Amino acid sequence: MNPAPAVRPAVEGDARAIAEVHVAGWRGGYRGLVDDAVLDALSVEDRAAGWARGLAGGSRVLLAGTGGRVEGFACFGAARDEDLPAGTGEVHALYVLPAAWGRGTGGALLDAAVAELLTGGAPGVVLWALEGNARARRFYERRGWRTDGVRRVERFDGQELPAVRHRWAGPATT
């Protein structure tokens, strides 16, 4: 049995670990959805620089892993969609190393991010997923998230992919 992942807030020195998870998560989760050339060109160094700026600027990020190793992260904050009630929260990003999929890391991160947003007064929480990312969408649905009918197009290096918004409907009952 695998130990439960430990969740903690990220600090500025975690930018590279976040970037490593981010790149590996994209490559594992989006292969077949996003062009291979785009995935293969992702740079841990570029992502680390971006995460360092974000962490220094106050981005809210949680990390999770076992044995002191960062295996996943969740970035969250205010929702960016204008059609939502003021104060609504959003899980902006949730990525886990493919080698850690199915071990509870993603669930621990998602639960912790939602709890922080709701404790902070958010009247609800949303997240976006690529429509074709069936694995991620099943994961969210098992955890009590439901699509709300809102769609948008995500652009990745010239490629356009449909995305769907999910709202947290409370703890899953199944």
Rank of each mutant, 00 (worst) to 15 (best):
I18Y: 05
Y30E: 02
E141H: 05
D148C: 08
D35E: 15
D36F: 06
W128K: 04
E141G: 03
G107A: 08
A108M: 07
A115H: 13
V11I: 14
D81W: 01
G120N: 06
G72Y: 02
G132T: 04
A56C: 00
H22L: 09
A37G: 14
I18D: 10
A41Y: 03
T88N: 06
F139D: 08
R31W: 05
T147I: 13
A136M: 04
G13H: 07
D40I: 14
G67V: 11
T88W: 15
R47I: 01
E12W: 12
E12G: 15
R27E: 08
P98M: 12
D81T: 13
L110W: 03
A41W: 12
W26V: 02
A37M: 07
G89D: 00
V126A: 01
G28F: 03
Y95T: 05
F76R: 09
A64S: 06
R135K: 12
R80K: 15
A24F: 02
G89Y: 02
W128G: 04
A64I: 05
T147D: 11
A56L: 00
G67C: 04
H92D: 11
G57W: 06
V23C: 06
Y140G: 03
R138H: 09
H22P: 10
D111K: 15
A10L: 00
E90V: 06
G50F: 12
G104L: 00
W51D: 02
G107H: 06
D40V: 11
G67K: 14
R137T: 10
A86K: 15
V61Q: 05
L39N: 01
R137H: 03
Y30R: 14
W101A: 00
G50L: 13
A17P: 06
H22T: 10
W128R: 12
A37Y: 14
V70A: 11
F73Q: 10
G68C: 00
L42A: 08
G77I: 03
S43E: 04
A112M: 09
R47W: 13
A100H: 04
D36Q: 14
L39R: 11
A86S: 12
A64R: 09
L110K: 08
V23I: 13
Y30A: 03
Y140P: 05
A41P: 00
A49C: 01
P85H: 05
A112P: 10
E45N: 13
G102E: 03
V23F: 01
V23M: 07
L109P: 00
G102R: 09
G57A: 13
L118P: 06
A15F: 04
A56S: 04
F76C: 00
A74Q: 12
L110I: 08
F139C: 01
A99H: 10
Y30M: 13
V126E: 02
P98S: 08
T147E: 14
L110V: 07
A93K: 15
V91E: 00
A24Y: 11
W26I: 09
E141T: 10
V114F: 04
A122K: 03
R47K: 15
